[in-house]
Design a protein around this nucleic acid. Structure first.
Lengths: 337, 337
DNA sequence: GTGAAAGCGCTAACAT
DNA sequence: ATGTTAGCGCTTTCAC
């Protein structure tokens, strides 16, 4: 493989000149530069980023740390879209992305921090990592610049991007309220998940502002799982037939709730209205199509990458980026829209 | 960041010894090794893979080249599952994966080959690249070890993994035939796509063997797009009302065909049976759930990575891996299964 | 069993 | 405008 040394020899100049010419420095004769570029092309030269990274002490690589990169996670296409967004920005600014996942059987024989340090990534984006992940703390406290998705931690080297979950949930609840629903249940995610907490807050606010009593018994956790949500909804519907609407903290859970309603022979949306959160692909293909609060997952990835690289280059104004959500009204809440 | 030099100093040995100790060479005193390992731990040492890669001339990194890593491609979760499979194997054998995509706006200012050479990836897996992609040829002809997904090219440095598309299509057609269908249409992908060609072949064989006349007019191309397939199916159903079943070369197209049938008020599967190909997530969530030929996309990625790394380490028996498919019977072909 | 020295390909002072 | 030199962190002969 050609090196700048080969080029230098062929051009009859020193390797320094070649380096400078190829890197667009101004202090090199334009004629020499042209000649060098020409020869580089002829010799089919590709710079060795390993060598460059070694000497410059940065790799122009960012790590994307995700957990649960399984077949299962294809259902909610969250991880994938975030990844696509990250990749998009990263390639626009000529960085590369290496993927670290912790699903594997080797199950974290190395910590996130080690992974990052060994590869000498300049920074990392963390997605789908649970707040109680023991290694999250470690990487956040390390000196590796990080951007977290949906985890609100901020420091000198750490930023995050999230959506306005309080407002999103509020919009969902207000939509149901506007449709006349007064007996609204909520299927939330985990107790300790940041987004769950926020979405519950928004839900509560909406009810409060509408002067509706919030029945705590009607708020259950579905662990973001379709089956669990289905079971919980089934129970709820049987015990409390007065419920007419569900707000779910994820679309996958909303699909589970719809299944439960169908099992009980309840028509959607006439007898039970259901609204989800996320706008996964399945939402618009469900029967009936699922109303939801759409998060722009691609944009989340894109903005995370943008924020991280701005941080790396010292031009980040803020370390926090909050994106908007959008209410998508489909037939699971309104007939014949 | 700690280097082996620091460790050497702390341990009072040479850097050579540190290197050997840490890399498990046998010719180092067990006591020295323990001491060195201890110190390395204390100093929170991480090996610099850039430096190592530079001197060893291999990076323990493979590139995953995909095209069309867009929001759109989330629908058919093909890319994502392949990626997950690749990632799984790669992390099992302590390699890393860097993702190169060519969706970006910078639209291939660099060729695949350049991307790979600059990062000094040891090899590459190519997925979703079209056979007529101008840069495919280049990378295949380069000296970079490659494994292609669903493109049958084989050489000293190139291998591929695919599924048995002829057999898969045959199984689909035979399923329809067994149900009594005699007027079967096919919605294929592109004219020049390898898999399309194979799937058509299998379809034709099944009909031939059953002694059924293959009406070429009933075979159309849907470009693997839902909308295009819908339009084509609509036209076909209007012009040839005798058609009772569709075999589609992708699930996404099958969903389009189902839409067309519904538009014409035809009941599925009673009046029109539809079977797809791929088994994307949407298939099982469609109404009615879509029968299909399932490809194990995760396994394709996993096997591709395995093949590539075996090739890199000179222990690949064959450069070709053909996976099996599975007929999944759902309600789009059979009621009340 | 251990160390000295060379070198991977590149950038960056520091000359000239 | 160009060249000389040192060095990034590591592995690997080759001595001892």
């Amino acid at each position: 493989m050609t090196t700048i040394k080969d080029i230098a020899k062929a051009a009859g100049v020193s390797i320094t000149t070649v380096s400078r010419a190829l890197n667009g420095y101004s202090d090199v004769n334009e004629k020499t530069r042209q000649k060098i570029i020409e020869i580089a092309k002829q010799l089919n030269y590709s710079p060795n980023t390993l060598a460059r990274g070694l000497v410059m002490n940065k790799s122009k690589t960012i790590g994307l740390l995700v957990s649960g990169l399984t077949r299962e996670s294809a259902k909610d296409n969250f991880t994938f879209e975030v990844l696509a967004g990250v990749n998009q920005y990263v390639s626009e600014v000529d960085y590369d992305m290496v993927l670290f996942s912790t699903t594997s059987t080797k199950q974290r024989e190395k910590t996130y921090t080690q992974l990052c340090r060994e590869r000498r990534v300049d920074g990392a984006i963390l997605q789908g990592i649970r707040v109680d992940d023991p290694y999250l703390q470690e990487v956040v406290e390390s000196d590796i610049p990080c951007v977290l998705i949906d985890i609100p931690i901020k420091s000198e080297t750490v930023g995050y991007v999230t959506t306005d979950n309080v407002l999103g949930a509020k919009k969902a609840a207000q939509h149901l309220l506007a449709l006349g629903h007064r007996h609204i249940a909520m299927v939330n995610g985990y107790e300790y998940a940041f987004v769950s907490e926020q979405r519950f807050k928004g839900f509560r606010e909406a009810l409060l502002e509408a002067g509706i009593f919030l029945n705590e018994q009607w708020v259950v956790n579905g662990a973001f799982q379709e089956e669990k949500a289905e079971r919980e909804a089934l129970r709820l519907l049987q015990q409390h037939p007065e419920i007419t609407a569900f707000f779910c903290a994820s679309d996958l859970m909303a699909l589970g709730v719809m299944k439960a309603a169908k099992k009980l022979g309840k028509r959607i949306p006439e007898e039970i209205a259901v609204i989800g959160y996320d706008d996964i692909i399945l939402a618009s293909y469900a029967t009936p199509p699922l109303s939801t609060i759409a998060q722009n997952k691609f944009a989340m990835g894109y903005e995370a990458a943008k924020l991280l690289i701005e941080m790396l280059e010292g031009k980040a104004h803020s370390h926090v980026k909050i994106l908007e959500t959008e209410l998508k009204i489909r037939e699971s809440t309104v007939k014949n829209q």
